[in-house]
Write a protein that binds this DNA or RNA. Sequence first.
RNA 1: GCGCCAGUAGCUCAAUCGGAUAGAGCAACGGCCUUCUAAGCCGUGGGUUGGGGGUUCGAUUCCCUCCUGGCGUACCA
Length: 580
Amino acid sequence: MSSFIFSSQPSANFTDWNDYGVMQKLKRSRMNRLKPDIYIKDEVAAALKKAFDVEPDIVIERPRQEAFGDFATTVALGLAKVLKMAPRKIAEALVENIVDADQLIEKMSIDGPGYINFTLSNHYWQSVLRGIIEAGPAFGEDTIGQNEKRQIEFVSANPTGPLNVVSARAAAVGDVLVSLLQKIGFAAEREFYINDAGRQVRLLGASVSARYMALFDRNEAMPEDGYQGDYIIELAQEIKDAHGDQFVALSHEQRVEQLKGIALATMIGKQKKAMQDYHVNYERWFHESELRDQNMHMEALERLHKKDLVYEKDGATWFNSSAFGDEKDRVLITSDGEPTYFLVDISYHENKFDRGFKWLLDLWGPDHHGYIPRMSAAMQALGHPEGSFQVKIIQQVNMLRAGEVVKMSKRAGNIIEMAEVVNEVGVDAARFFFIMRRLDSPLDFDIDLAKKQTDENPVYYVQYAHARLYNILEFARTQNIALDHSQDIAMLTAKEEIALIKKLGEYPDVLQKAALLLEPHRITTYLMELASTFHSFYQNNRVVSDDKALSQARLILVDGTRVVIKNALDLLKISAPERM
RNA sequence: GCGCCAGUAGCUCAAUCGGAUAGAGCAACGGCCUUCUAAGCCGUGGGUUGGGGGUUCGAUUCCCUCCUGGCGUACCA
């Protein structure tokens, strides 16, 4: 088993977000202004080349503590051994050789054992704000994806029951991940795989048939393993209301077949509606039946066959998956001659690659993680490069009310329904809460908290910041101080002003990292930090005052902040209220 | 048994490829509204990063081991 699929880190061949190779090819002028770390990296590299004639890997990081400046590098520490010199001596020589052609660096200092800290000038930060205003809704976007086709498949719940809360979590996460990839230049798409074929769908038909007949006082046995939830009864009732008794007289087989079709269409319709109400718009809903109708699974079998990875045993057809790290071989065609779900799923993923996607991500529920090795084995066997197929497990969700775990609903078939939760707390809170945590850790969803309209609720905290920003711009208008982007902003030098601009300037990095590391929670965390930085600025600096020039400069800062919060909320498809 | 994920402040979570004194929010306590939204701000206390060992200038981060919790280990889907 290659360990990459179990790693929470991106695989090695994955675009390395710390290697800005692609970006360096872009025009430097504009990018440099928004990527000061690259500028510093280049400066440090040139200085090292000049002073010591070495070209080590240089990492530019942001110090945790404000006192250490805006950027730092530990390169001198790492070079100590190579150059056989004290790190501080190396650092001193390095600093002396920094040219800083663009005059962005305000201060350089050598601290501790040999850290070199860089503080950028206010002038530089003002230019960042200019850049944000110019970019507007596009601020944060990038082109590093180079239009590569990527696809994320998520939710893909069986159409045999209502969607549960893990689906709600997966829907929010998957939707935002695709948006993130699109923002940094990938041609990314959302896809929902509808399992509308096979045993379980026949079971759905038979279950509905039994309930339907009961409505006419006919006794028809519920199939073994049939679906027990009360929603099946509701479904039967809906069918009776729409079609009357027209299926009663049919043979059992015919009735099951017809009711199966109706029930399936109804359930899929409900799923589509739930997703739409939740602001998730799939580029494609892919039907499993399509694969089967076109015999794509047999084609996939043939591909494996050609690679000599298939054999017959005990009347079944097996895939030699253990040769690719799976713990045992898996059945593709059962001894009854039925293709397994696994085989069909392999062909589905082959189809995705055939459609031109270079990279696939599946979001699966926690009960499917045992399935990862065999699927990865299949993709590897079929020659897809390592890392081109990835799976992330969306961990379980505990719904809490008054501190207690909410019990499952019998009506929905012993699950907690997605629609119920979304209706109760609203789309904004639901999406925010589901995105707030890393996807591989279990999530406690506090329903009471999500509904609270107080500072305890992070959604309101962020939305309030947006409403407040909007209100300031409105108020300025009433005072006849218009927002004018051409005004001078050189007087924006106060501590809170610069701190706010710095925070705004982080957004593109946050977005890029969230996208490439598949960690959407970075966006919500950032939003909370940004809101906090803004509230702090607001508290200490009056925007609209008698000083007209200063007011106008601050209005530009307010507008820049509004732009970034709006962009991030739009990305999450959470509303940005103008008034609260 | 084997495998996957997780274990960080009372609670929920962060922590930028291994970097500086591990940070936020909530809860607790104390301040701040004549001024653009107090759904806000400022401050105080709170930690053996589950335990132990290793790798090195440096470990929440990498390796080994143990403990705890969740999940998975089908000719089901």
